[in-house]
């Protein structure tokens, strides 16, 4: 009973997978962004203006962690 899929069926499957992938992605993208993110950006801005660059860091190594 097993029928080998033709190339076009595979292409169609890949098309369906691609749509599913984007649907899955878009669902997260369209979620309302939690407030904590804008609060965080405000804090970063304030830290900078209140201490002129205090919060700036050249450390781009990704090694800092709580």
């Amino acid at each position: 009973m097993n029928i080998e899929p033709t190339g076009s069926v595979d292409a169609a499957i890949q098309g369906a997978l691609g749509r599913k992938l984007r649907e899955s992605w878009e669902e997260v993208v369209k979620e309302e962004v939690p407030k904590k993110f804008t609060v965080l950006l405000e804090q970063l801005k304030q830290a900078e203006t209140s201490s002129s660059g205090f919060a700036r860091s050249d450390n781009d190594g990704g090694e800092r962690q709580d």
Binding site: K36, F37, L40, L41, L44, A55, S57, D60
Partner: peptide
């Protein structure tokens, strides 16, 4: 995942 994004924002801002 959101913790990861927050840390990314801090790092992006600072660099």
């Amino acid at each position: 995942a959101d913790d990861l994004v927050q840390e990314t924002l801090v790092k992006a801002w600072n660099s």
